[in-house]
Computed example of a mutant assay.
Amino acid sequence: MADSQIEDDVALETPAADVFIAPSVNPDLLFTGASYTHYSAVPHSLQPTPNPDAASSSEKTIPGPACALGVDEAGRGPVLGPMVYGLFYLPLPLSDPLLRTTHHFDDSKVLTPTVRSNLMEKLCTPDTDLYTQCGWAVDVMSARDIGANMMKPAGTYNLNAQAMDATIALIQGVYKRGVNVKEIYIDTIGNPATYQKKLERVFPTAKVTVAKKADSLYPCVSAASVCAKVTRDAALEVLFESYVKKGEGDGDEEMSGTAEAGQETWGSGYPSDSKTTGWLKRNMDPCFGWGAECRFSWGTAKDMLELKGMAAKVEWPVEEDDETSRLTDFFSAEKEQDGDELGTWFGRPVGVDVF
C-alpha cells in the first residue's frame, strides 16, 4: 500500500479532536481494563403496548413496529484500545429515508471523524428524530480481555469466536427489552454463509442477512458502525487523558505521551500509525510494558517486549524436589517417623489405652 494511502487511512481512523463522548463511554471501567455493554433506552414508539383484549397471558402485550437491526464492529486490528461491537435498530419503513436520505449515514470508515461524531451526538440528543425513532447498543471488548483470551495456555478463545459471542449477546439483549426485531443485517466474520446459518439457528423468528461490506449496503449496519466507531474513538481519548494527567502530576514528560511542541496523541491505535508505534516505544515500562489499553497478544507489542533490553525477563527457578510427590505424602507414617514437622503439626497420635 502506498504511503499516501496509509496516511489517508490513518487520518480516517484517528478520533476527532473534540470527539463526542457518548453515554456508552464508561471511564471507570475503561481504566480498569474491564469489558462491558451499554444499551440505549428503547424509544417509546418501539415498545410493546398492553393488549386490553388479551385472551391469554401470552397475548398480554401487542408487539411494537417491526424493526430492522444491524451490527458492525470498529477496532478489530489496532494494538491500542478496545474493539467495539455496535448495534442499531429502527422501524423497517424508516431505514432508508431516515438514515440514508435525511442523515447520510454510511460506513464509518468513509465518514470523516467529525461527521461520524456529529451523527452520534444527534442520536444521543433528546427530541431529535434519531433519538425518538432509533435504539442502539455497544459491546466494548477491552484490550486486556482480548489479549488474555487469545493468550490462554489451554484452548485459545480467538478473536472471531469472541466477536461471534458479542454479536449474539447484543442481539439477545435487544429481544429481552421487547423490541420486535424482524430483520437482522450483519457485516460478516469469515465465511458469510456459515455465519448466517449459525445466526439463523439462534434467531429463527427473524430474517438474517450476513454479507461482506454490509456496512455500506444496509443503512442500519452503517449506523451500527458509527455507534461502534465513535464509542471506540471516545474511549481512546479518555484512556489517553489518563497518561496526560499522570505526566502533569509527576512531571514525567515521557510518560505523559506528549511532545514538547504540544499534545501529540497516540494516534489511531493501529500498528501502521507511526504515532501509535512511537508512543508505545516512548511509554513502555521496562517490566510491565503498558497498561490495560494495550493488546499484548498483538505482534507489535510482542516484538517490542522481546527486544533485548526493552523489557525485563522473568526466569522461574527449577524445583529440585521430586515432581511426583503428593500433598498426602507429607502426612504419611514414614514422614512422621522421620520427624517431619507437618506430620506432627497437630500433635502425635495416642493409643486407645489413654481413654
Rank of each mutant, 00 (worst) to 15 (best):
E121I: 07
C134K: 03
L119W: 00
P113N: 10
Q133T: 15
V110F: 00
R116T: 06
A137R: 02
L130Q: 06
H104F: 02
M150K: 08
T128A: 11
V140K: 01
S142C: 09
V138Q: 02
G135D: 06
T101G: 02
P126W: 03
R144M: 08
T101R: 12
T128W: 12
A143Y: 00
D145P: 01
T114W: 09
T101A: 08
D106P: 01
P113S: 09
D127N: 14
F105Q: 07
G135N: 05
C134S: 12
M151E: 15
L123V: 08
V115Q: 08
A148I: 12
T114Y: 08
K109C: 06
N149S: 15
R116F: 01
N149A: 13
A148Y: 01
C134A: 14
D145Q: 09
V138R: 03
R116G: 07
P113H: 12
D129I: 11
H104P: 04
D106H: 04
L119V: 06
D106K: 05
K152P: 03
M141H: 05
V115K: 13
C124F: 03
L123A: 09
P113I: 12
H103L: 07
S108H: 04
F105E: 07
C134I: 10
K152E: 07
T102L: 09
G147V: 15
H103F: 15
S142W: 00
T112N: 05
I146S: 08
T101K: 12
P113D: 12
C134L: 10
T125F: 06
N118T: 11
L130R: 03
V110P: 03
W136M: 07
M150L: 10
P126S: 11
A143L: 02
W136C: 08
L111N: 05
C134H: 06
P126Q: 11
V138A: 02
Q133N: 15
D106A: 14
K109Y: 03
D139N: 14
E121Y: 02
C124Q: 13
T102V: 10
V110Q: 10
T101M: 08
D107K: 07
P126R: 11
D139E: 05
D127A: 13
S117G: 11
M120P: 03
P113M: 09
D129C: 10
G135H: 01
V115A: 15
T112V: 12
S117M: 10
H104N: 13
S117Q: 09
W136D: 05
N118A: 15
V138I: 07
D145L: 07
D139M: 06
